[in-house]
């Protein structure tokens, strides 16, 4: 059957996450094309207050229960599976984020449907839906045809406009019965982000280092530049995973979302997970040895070169300038 398109609403601690609006905008277009209603499914605890924000949907489906604050992927999948079948849905959109990670593959397996993750764009051709995903750290795009317009699609955050997913109207809300199979929660508690010496989300200038910095000792080169320019040092995931800088300095999907006036990306390839955290910086200047590094697709200024040759000279010039 092909009777609806469902968006699995992403929310965290009582707030709708922006990706939800991206998905609603995409979902609306697909639903209109297939001439079926768009349904927004919200699963969580105390989530009925979120429904006024979901007016673009033709109706909102609500699964609201104490036990559903943070559900593990297999439980979320089981709940969505019930709704998918009940509503005879064809396409399910969900967020390609840490919060929803896993729900797509589990559902794909249980419903015997394709799962297309990392989706950035879509188009219809002769009635068929074609989806484009980014692979290999954003270096290659792949296009897939969704057979019979049925499947599960993971939308990559920051790929679609938020405005297209917002509406002033109010959608009717259908409260669904919480199934008996919901167990006692495995979720125990939140662990708040550690407070660091520096809050990178509040800095005007960030000197950010990636894998290209090569080792812990080289961080000093970035520290010196940051001092000369009046900024702070941040990093991409590999640098933090190596223990070269603390978690509080991490920019990207799991780390911080930053929007400084100037973002200097040193030896950062610009994988999608990193871009998610910094692409709205006012000015981005990237130095990388790889001319095909995805960071150059979003940078305002780019240098194909060796940061170890350029940065010390730049630091010296900035120091001289300050006098």
């Amino acid at each position: 059957m092909n009777n609806s398109v469902i968006v699995l609403v992403e929310h965290l601690r009582g707030n709708i996450v922006d990706i939800t609006y991206e998905m609603l905008g995409v979902g609306k277009k697909i639903a209109q094309h297939l001439n079926v209603p768009l349904l927004a499914l919200v699963i969580g605890k105390d989530v009925s207050k979120l429904t006024p924000n979901l007016g673009l949907a033709d109706s909102v489906l609500l699964l609201d229960d104490e036990k559903l604050e943070i559900t593990p992927p297999q439980l979320t999948a089981k709940l969505v599976e019930n709704v998918y079948k009940q509503k005879q849905a064809s396409i399910l959109l969900l967020a390609c984020t840490n919060i929803t990670a896993g729900v797509g593959p589990i559902l794909a397996r249980r419903l015997d449907l394709p799962f297309i993750n990392f989706c950035k764009t879509f188009r219809f051709e002769n009635g068929d839906l074609f989806l484009t995903s980014q692979l290999y750290g954003g270096k290659i795009l792949s296009e897939v045809k969704l057979i019979d317009n049925k499947g599960i699609v993971g939308i990559y955050p920051g790929s679609f406009p938020l405005d297209a997913g917002k509406s002033d109207r109010t959608a009717p809300v259908e409260e669904l019965e919480v199934p008996d199979f919901v167990p006692e929660p495995s979720f125990k508690k939140y662990i708040e982000p550690e407070l660091g010496d520096i809050d990178i989300t509040k800095e005007n200038i960030l000197v950010s280092v990636g894998r290209g910095i090569q080792n812990k000792d080289n961080i000093e080169i970035a520290e010196e530049l940051a001092e000369a320019i009046g900024g702070a040092v941040s990093a991409s995931r590999p640098v933090v995973d190596q223990g070269w800088l603390p978690l509080t300095r991490q920019v990207g999907k799991s780390g911080m979302i930053v929007k400084p006036k100037l973002y200097l990306a040193l030896g950062i390839s610009g994988a999608p997970e990193h871009q998610e955290g910094m692409k709205n910086s006012e000015t981005i200047l990237a130095i990388n040895t790889d001319p095909k590094a995805p960071i150059f697709n979003i940078a305002h200024y780019g240098v194909v070169g060796d940061l170890f040759e350029i940065v010390p000279i730049l630091t010296e010039k900035l120091k001289q300038r300050k006098g």
Binding site: K145, A299, L314, K317
Partner: peptide, 30 residues
């Protein structure tokens, strides 16, 4: 899933590329 095609992303062409030796590049950045 069967992939229809793979392709490289179009470079947005937004970035102004700075060229030269390290000295020249550093001057341009300043």
């Amino acid at each position: 899933i069967e992939i229809e095609k793979l392709y490289e992303p179009e470079v947005a062409g937004k970035a102004v590329m700075l060229e030269g030796n390290p000295e020249e590049i550093a001057t341009k950045i300043v």
